[in-house]
Every structure is written in structure tokens, then in C-alpha cells.
Amino acid sequence: MKTVLTALSAAVLLAACGTKENTAPPPAPQAITDHSVGHYCTMNLSEHNGPKAQIFLNGKPDKPVWFSTIKQMFGYTKLPEEPKGIHIIYVTDMGKVTDWSKPNADNAWIDAKKAYYVIDTDFIGGMGAEDALPFADKGQAEQFAQMQGGKVVSFDEMPEEYIFK
């Protein structure tokens, strides 16, 4: 019985360690430079149009994981083989971008979990495929969807079938 209680106590302690929240303030988003390379495509982000994303992992506040498209960022968060110790995710706020052919120049970053995404549009993103368009303002997202087609979803509502199609 003592062995069972010891094992149970150890399991509870280990489980508690695995769920520890990162209480450090999130790092600020970084500007895209010539050294910003997409995680999956290994291409320089400044060479692509469309919204981008950057993920900061726990314990790595100076080195974001870069994404050439919003769909790639969502894929990273869903794929079981990718790290899950995510501190914060930033995406381009397309509502603040003045030149959609060069959205990187504005560096209008927002918290991805607070953004509204327009999906199922004809917008072709940085990798030559349809991509989601993030907006900080829900009204701007709804207006874009009404004018250009598509629908608005939150971070938690993003359909997996959209991400992986």
C-alpha cells in the first residue's frame, strides 16, 4: 500500500509540474527582417505578401518561430509533433495594414488569440494559396467578409478542415 501511495503522490507532483503556467510577461512582437525565415518553408518572410505569424515558445523570449501564412501557424498549434509550450502568438492585423502587397512594412502585430479571422475568401497569401486574414477589430473583419465573401471566426473557432485543406 505504501508503494502505491508513493507512486500516486509522484504522479500527482509530475502532473502539476507539466501544467505550470508561464507567468513571465510575454515578449514583444519582433519586426520582420532579412533573418526572419518561415518555419515550414524556410523562405525569407519579407519576400512574401499576406499576413504573417510569430510564435514565442516558453523559455525562448528572443527567438520567435516564424510563419509565412496564418494557416501554417494554426497547423503548428494543432500538429501533435510540434512543441506545445507556447507563450504567445502574434499575427498581422490586416485592419492596420496600408499596403496589402507589403503588409510586413507596417508591423501591425496583435495577439492571435484575440484576433478575428476571415476565412473562405479568394485572398491568396504568401505561399500562393488561400489564407486566413486576421483583424483586431471584429467590425473590420465582418465588413471585409461582407464585401469580399467569406466568414469570420475567432481563434478557438478556426475549423481544422480549413487549416488542413
Rank of each mutant, 00 (worst) to 15 (best):
G18T: 02
W66A: 01
K84T: 08
P26G: 10
T23I: 10
G95I: 00
A11V: 14
T98C: 06
A105Q: 13
P27M: 03
T77E: 04
P83I: 04
G50Y: 00
D111H: 01
E82G: 08
G75Y: 07
K52G: 01
H39K: 13
D34E: 14
D62M: 10
G50M: 04
L45P: 02
G59F: 03
T3W: 13
E47S: 12
A53C: 09
H87N: 11
T23D: 13
K20W: 05
I89G: 08
P80L: 11
A16W: 11
P83D: 09
M43I: 07
S9E: 08
T3E: 14
Q54A: 05
M94Y: 03
M1P: 06
T42D: 15
L14N: 09
T23Q: 09
K60A: 15
N49R: 14
Q54S: 09
K113V: 15
S101M: 11
G18S: 02
Y76N: 01
Y40H: 13
T98N: 10
D62Q: 09
I86A: 02
A24G: 08
G18P: 04
T6V: 15
A10W: 07
P64L: 07
K84C: 04
C17V: 08
W109S: 01
I89Q: 08
T23C: 11
K52H: 05
F56T: 00
A16Y: 06
K113D: 07
P25H: 02
K20S: 11
I70V: 11
P27V: 02
M73N: 06
P80V: 09
I110D: 02
N22Y: 06
T42Y: 14
G50D: 01
P29T: 06
A7F: 13
G38V: 00
A16T: 07
T77W: 06
H39C: 09
